[in-house]
């Protein structure tokens, strides 16, 4: 039979596995949002990571800043999700849309959103202080199966992220707006011809991705702290996942998210957290050299 040590090792590995799946599911949420925006509007949002934090911060403000804890997380979601939608919609309409008319607009959008990222990061630091905040977990406690211990939190995060993605996927394929979004992504000229209001779709898509990433922020802020300066790192991670999965491919993004979530968890366990960024970077470089369109990209 297996020795004591091997069994303990297996339990440790399972722990890491769960952690990896849990973060992977949030990455999936973010990757889907990012690939959606890029696939449809071709705009790249450098402030994506800061929107992730925005979700967490809005939740924190509601629960602790204003002190409104009635209804728990249900209230939080009801209040914060539409707020994120508005922020995303307004941002697209006011800042991205005017740039579309200019030459080189994709680059200009990148620069603008980079400025926005800096603005938000420093704003968070000023308003919330450098000390990190965290949100209380939705479900405390653990599930014990034999000697394996799963925290309800991890399971919940996984379930909710996947749930969010499935809702999104359903909307994309079964609602009129979803079809319109796909149409704009596949042929913007054709979309215009059939009378799809392209500009409104751009703004809505941007807004939806903001909601998704904000939702991810709320979920992960329960597990890890909200670090005001982490916007850049989070954005790069989301980007790596999306690029690895293939820009514009939702399925690719899903696979990539879990692979990277697990990779990060295992590298962190084996070598230490600071190496996981390096590992990601190496993976990215390898992808770009060997298969630039990612796992399932359409060769953009």
């Amino acid at each position: 039979m297996f020795s004591e040590d091997t069994i303990l090792l297996l339990y440790e590995i399972t722990d890491v596995l769960i952690a990896g799946l849990s973060t992977g599911s949030v990455y999936a949420l973010m990757a889907v949002g990012m690939t959606l925006v890029y696939g449809v509007t071709k705009a790249f949002n450098f402030a994506y990571g800061d929107f992730f934090n925005m979700g967490g911060y809005f939740a924190w403000i509601l629960m602790f800043g204003i002190g409104f804890q009635f209804g728990g997380y249900v209230t939080v979601l009801i209040v914060v999700m539409p707020l994120m939608f508005l922020v995303g919609y307004a941002l697209e309409k006011l800042m991205v849309a005017p740039l579309r008319k200019r030459a080189d607009w994709e680059n200009k959008v990148m620069m603008l959103t980079l400025g926005l990222a800096l603005f938000l990061t420093s704003l968070y630091t000023v308003v919330f202080g450098v000390r990190m905040k965290s949100l209380p977990p939705i479900l405390e406690g653990t599930l014990e199966v034999g000697q394996l211990v799963f925290s309800y939190q991890d399971i919940l995060i996984f379930v909710m992220s996947i749930g969010g993605i499935m809702v999104f996927g359903w909307m994309l394929n079964n609602t009129r707006i979803g079809m319109a979004v796909k149409a704009v992504a596949q042929n913007p000229i054709g979309a215009k011809i059939v009378g799809i209001p392209k500009e409104r779709i751009f703004a809505s898509t941007f807004a939806i991705s903001t909601v998704m990433v904000g939702f991810g922020g709320i979920l992960l802020s329960q597990k890890w702290f909200i670090n005001p300066m982490s916007g850049g790192t989070i954005m790069v991670k989301a980007w790596v996942v999306t690029a690895f999965g293939g820009m514009g491919s939702i399925r690719g993004g899903l696979y990539a998210a879990f692979i990277i979530g697990l990779l990060e968890a295992f590298v962190g366990w084996l070598f230490g957290m600071s190496y996981s960024i390096i590992a990601l970077f190496i993976l990215l470089l390898a992808t770009l050299v060997i298969r630039p369109q990612g796992l399932m990209g359409k060769g953009d």
Partner: peptide
């Protein structure tokens, strides 16, 4: 009024039926 393009401008990764349905967007 509708424009029917010489380049056709169809939605490549959608079925014929979906393309037709999208034609009826307004």
């Amino acid at each position: 009024l509708i424009y029917i393009a010489e380049n056709r401008e169809l939605f490549p990764h959608m079925t014929v039926l979906e393309n037709l349905k999208l034609g009826a967007y307004s």
